[in-house]
Design a protein around this nucleic acid. Structure first.
Length: 872
RNA sequence: GGGCAAUUAGCUCAGCUGGUUAGAGCGCACGGUUCACAUCCGUGAGGUCGGGGGUUCGAGCCCCUCAUUGCCCA
């Protein structure tokens, strides 16, 4: 069954071969589990079709694949639904850029042709990202891959829109929205980033009837042209006499009122506020309170329109300068001063977004938000880590209606029709009669992705997939799209399916560079995952991402860790190599019964079963990083460093039965560890598993280990710890005294209560610290004179090293050791003498403390004796 | 202005519901070609767990406060 392994793991070859094999075998599909298996479903956050693989993808694929592979191995019908998002704005921008490079534009080619070209572009480049996800080992069901613009998903979008309209939850109206002049579309609040920037505060005089002037300050002078009032605080003694009078818009001489409104901050600027309802959110509110007119002064491209009088046609920034210059000439300006204020910029492209009045479609979101709040409050949906629940509540409790229309071409066209007399009809087809024109706007890209968990499973049709796999289970994604996406999925899912779309939201952080800086092209710190995969293979990258992150926290990507984990992969490979070359014929699978085992085997199986228990618990609580670290530690620091080394005795010197038992344990432990590790490092584990004796076709569908309490063995762990500590102590002494590593030495042991342990296992010292013979010190015998001693628990090992030892140095060493013990003993005695501790601490904690103290005291006594007999 | 994180070894990070002598990797120092692995093995140095106060028998972990950094919301 076992076969010879190559000297090293050829990850490039194996990754391709294994992935293809798994997929061809259908193991990525839930149908590979028994028909009555419990489902476990994750909807993959669909990457943008425009996307190129970055570390963020690598992170989410790693975490979700771990979840999926774990549950698959636990026998569930694991389904991971992949797909891509049409990403309205992002994609349209890319295609527009392509057209620009070709010397044309979207307006030149027209809507129909533009869409045709975008589809072509999508066919050509849209597959790239999903191909790259395969490189990461993503075990998703590609037969169920979806795209947000697929016919069926578009059906779902229309269904939802129309039904929201029928329920009165969608309205169309002229409202103040964030307008992106470059893209010439409205964008939602979430798509606007606000940041402090250096600017200028302009002070000027507002002429008021009767020849007075009201001083006003503004950061955007061009908006003066759209002013419909000047506001002062009603209690402001400087200005309250002006309330109710007429003011005149500079350069336009348009007549507007001076109003009183408590919103005005008397401390800021001059204490008087110009009100531009069509281009400022606060002013908009003021205008609504006072029934002021709203004058839009901007065209869609942010040039000024006819309302701007002489400034019509100028760009907004040019108009700002020109108007200010003209006002200066007219004697209306006072001064300018540097001023830091908050600038709204588009999340895409970074241009300054203008608040602008425009006709848009909105979703009345409060009723949906209520349900979404309840779902988390009631625990029907759990957010990991929990602290994000607060963030979620805050956003939903203060939510504003959702502007869902976009003046783009690439996206789901709003299913509405404009009648000849300005009527609106919402529906998939126009009503009977002539003159109905389709709505031009498309929907916000998040509208369709908000349906993702159920639209990908066939909704609104009651498909078998929808019935079996919905609701899904875990939504794993980045905390940066909690509002954009997660909250909307919850709202729409609850509203349209009456079920939470998933029971758990697991949020991961952002991948940053080694020093915690955001990764960006301009910072020059881009880390390309494909390069790392090329160099080290994908397993080390996955392991690094999985073990380097805790839920909700950003992860700093240190490629040094990838390299280290590449060495870990090699290390596992070499362990497997050791195991396989030492096989001879068939070996029984499974672990031998505990009573048939020697101490090292009882120990490693005890450790293994504790590991299994821990890893399972950690997986179930989403603590993947800790789980990975524990497996790593077990394999390298326990299995390889100690068990494999110790197994060489039975393997090389034992009788047939001993050899066979050792082989069986080696194979069993390796097999179990590979199973634990498989979700993290699918390729190397599968490849090795195929080389060791095993039952079943593939590791990917092998059963996840279950801890067997019969193998928990405290006594074996205690005894092995003593042996290990003694060996370490002896190595330490050898190193300190510069005894050549090749030199065999002898030891005399005072064994305390561990006589039987030494009778059976003192042979271990030969190979592990080159102590050729260990002699037990008989009762009443004196220890050797010129020797170093290593003390652990009740055991002292004397190493007669006359030629190496300087008595003074040895005494110093012992005194140091003794002092260390004294500190610990005092602390421990103090605890045990403390009534509060004895009365209140858990009994097992007290018991552990007593055992510790006993061991420390035993060691201290022996060292003290040694010192008194040897040192003056 | 409100909120949330983070602050642990030179660097990057773990540390679960408070309970052994606070851990790992990298880096560093010293030493190693013995039959799985030099992509390795052994040994070691290195931390007043950001400061201060508190709760507790017991605090890296809980509470208060301050500082620094980052993020979210307004």
């Amino acid at each position: 069954m076992a076969n010879t392994m190559a000297k090293n793991f050829d990850f490039k070859e194996a990754e391709r071969r294994l992935y293809q094999w798994w997929q061809e075998k259908g193991w990525f599909k839930p149908e590979s589990a028994p028909a009555d298996a419990e489902p476990f479903v994750i909807s993959m956050p669909p990457p943008n079709v425009t996307g190129a693989l970055h570390l963020g993808h690598a992170l989410f694929v790693t975490v979700e694949d771990i979840m999926i592979r774990f549950e698959r191995m636990r026998g569930k019908a694991a389904l991971w639904v992949p797909g891509t998002d049409h990403a309205g704005i992002a994609t349209q921008l890319q295609v527009e850029k392509m057209l620009r490079d070709q010397g044309t534009s979207r307006h030149e080619v027209g809507r129909e042709e533009f869409l045709a070209r975008t589809w072509q572009w999508k066919e050509k480049y849209g597959g790239a990202i999903t191909q790259q996800l395969r490189l990461l080992g993503a075990s998703c069901d590609w037969d169920r891959e979806r795209f947000t613009l697929d016919d069926q998903l578009s059906e779902a979008v229309q269904e939802v829109f129309i039904s929201l309209w029928d329920q009165g939850l969608i309205y169309r109206g002229t409202r103040l929205v964030n307008w992106s002049p470059g893209l010439q579309t409205a964008v939602s609040d979430l798509e606007v980033e606000r940041e402090e920037e250096a600017g200028t505060l302009y002070f000027f005089k507002y002429p008021v009837e009767g020849g007075e002037f009201l001083p006003v300050a503004t950061t955007r002078p061009e908006t003066i042209l759209g002013d419909t009032a000047v506001a002062v605080h009603p209690e402001d003694e400087r200005y309250q006499h002006l309330i109710g009078k007429k003011a005149y818009v500079p350069m336009l001489n348009r007549e507007i009122p001076v109003i009183g409104d408590a919103y005005v901050d008397r401390e800021f600027g001059t204490g008087a506020l110009k009100v531009t309802p069509a281009h400022d959110f606060n002013d908009y509110e003021i205008a609504r309170r006072h029934n002021l007119p709203m004058i839009n002064i901007l065209n869609p491209d942010a040039t000024l329109n006819a309302n701007a009088g002489a400034y019509q046609g100028m760009d907004r920034f040019a108009a700002r300068e020109k108007l200010w210059a003209d006002m200066t000439d007219a004697g209306l300006t006072i001064k300018t001063q540097p001023h830091t204020y908050i600038i709204p910029r588009s999340q895409r492209g970074g241009e300054i977004v203008e608040p602008m009045l425009s006709m848009q479609w909105f979703v009345k979101i409060q009723p949906l938000a209520e349900k979404a709040l309840d779902a988390v409050r009631s625990g029907a949906i759990q957010i990991v880590p929990e602290r994000f629940e607060k963030v979620y509540y805050h956003w939903l409790e203060n939510i504003e209606d959702w502007c869902v229309s976009r003046q783009l071409w690439w996206g789901h066209r709003i299913p509405a029709w404009h009648g000849p007399n300005g009527e609106i009809h919402v529906g998939k087809t126009p009503p009977p009669g002539d003159g109905w024109k389709p709505e031009e706007d498309v929907l916000d890209t998040w509208f369709s992705s908000g349906l993702w968990p159920f639209s990908t499973l066939g909704w609104p049709e009651q498909t078998p997939d929808l019935q079996r796999f919905y609701p899904t289970h875990v939504m794993e994604t980045g905390y940066d799209i909690l509002f954009f996406w997660v909250a909307r999925m919850i709202m729409l899912g609850l509203w349209f399916t009456d079920k939470p779309p998933f029971h758990t939201v697991y949020l991961h952080g952002l991948v940053r560079d080694k020093h915690g800086r955001k990764i960006s092209k301009t910072a020059g710190n881009v880390i390309d995952p494909t390069e790392l995969i090329e160099q080290y293979g994908v397993d080390p990258l996955r392991f690094t991402l999985a073990t380097g992150a805790t839920p909700g926290n950003d992860i700093n990507m240190d490629t040094g860790r990838v390299e280290r984990n590449w060495r870990f992969v090699n290390k596992i490979w070499q362990m497997a190599n050791f195991v396989t070359v030492n096989l001879d014929g068939d070996v029984p699978l499974g672990a031998p019964p505990p009573q048939a085992l020697d101490l090292p085997s009882r120990w490693i199986l005890s450790r293994l079963n504790r590991l299994i228990e821990n890893v399972t618990r950690l997986f179930e609580t989403y603590q993947y990083g800790e789980a990975g670290r524990q497996i790593d530690d077990f394999l390298w620091s326990e299995f390889a460093d100690w068990y494999i080394e110790m197994s060489k005795y039975p393997l090389y010197q034992g009788n047939d039965a001993e050899k066979q038992t050792a082989r069986q344990v080696l194979v069993y432990v390796l097999d179990q560890a590979l199973r634990l590790l498989h979700p993290f490092m699918p390729f190397v584990t599968e490849e090795i598993w195929q080389h060791i004796p095993h039952e079943g076709e593939a590791l990917i569908i092998a059963a996840f280990p279950i801890a067997d309490a019969r193998y928990f063995d405290d006594a074996a762990e205690t005894q092995m710890t003593i042996l290990i500590d003694l060996i370490r102590g002896i190595r330490n002494v050898r190193d300190e005294y510069k005894v050549e590593p090749g030199r065999k030495i002898t030891a005399v042991a005072s064994v305390g209560g561990f006589g039987a342990l030494f009778d059976q296992y003192s042979y271990l010292f030969a190979r592990l610290c080159n102590v050729a013979t260990v002699t037990k010190l008989g009762a009443g015998e004196n220890p050797p004179g010129e020797s170093a001693s290593v003390v652990v628990n009740e055991v002292t090992m004397y190493l007669p090293l006359a030629e190496f030892i300087d008595l003074g140095a040895e005494c110093e060493r012992l005194n140091k050791e003794s002092a260390k013990l004294t500190v610990q003993i005092e602390k421990s005695r103090g605890m045990l003498a403390n009534e509060g501790f004895i009365n209140r601490a858990q009994p097992d904690v007290i018991e552990r403390e007593r055992a510790k103290l006993a061991s420390l005291e035993a060691s201290a006594a022996q060292i003290a004796e040694r010192i008194s007999s040897m040192c003056k």
